[in-house]
Nucleic acid binder design. Sequence first.
DNA 1: CCTATATTTAGATAACTGTCTAATTAGATG
DNA 2: CATCTAATTAGACAGTTATCTAAATATAGG
Lengths: 95, 95
Amino acid sequence: MSASNNAFKAIADPARREILRLLRSGEMTAGDLAAHFDMSKPTMSHHFAVLADADLITRRREGQTIWYGLNTTVLQDVLSWMMDLAGAETKGRKK
Amino acid sequence: MSASNNAFKAIADPARREILRLLRSGEMTAGDLAAHFDMSKPTMSHHFAVLADADLITRRREGQTIWYGLNTTVLQDVLSWMMDLAGAETKGRKK
DNA sequence: CCTATATTTAGATAACTGTCTAATTAGATG
DNA sequence: CATCTAATTAGACAGTTATCTAAATATAGG
């Protein structure tokens, strides 16, 4: 429960954040995603693995191609951690 | 504009996230913060530096002691990046 | 000014990370 | 099955990071 450290580490990389951003509009294949970056495919594959390990994306094979999609459930956890923090500016102690 | 990569990298470390969490209720001295962790003071000082560099905390000297506080403005940026992402589950494309 | 307290800076080191090329797996198709 | 396409795994390497101990800085009080 609460966001895993893996999720925070995963979004610490700009390329991985961009991958997530690209997936906002729906699923994309590994190849199409990779085409948006100036990196080798193995490097992209590594980033996919980090994101999948953090449960930030879903993975589905369809024939030769693999489709990746956004998994927002973990993002919600990260989000709520952050909202708890960002909402603290009033210094109102909680609990 | 938009959250710096430094902020994302800063919150990727569990100890630093815990520091931020401790600061929710108001300022604390470097020593009091360090007392909450099983780490050397130089190590804690390093984490303070990373957080300050990302503009996630404020720093103020008062006599011998240094007070750290939460700076929520950068957190808001990180937050909005994440909300944009997490709110995308409907697949409604934006712009 | 000497000493005590609070904190940081310096320097070293082990572990981790992002990246690449080469090789491999998996599926489709002639 | 030979081969083409899509993607991953393996292995190497450079750069970064978290951590420590030792030393330095800064301030306060005799």
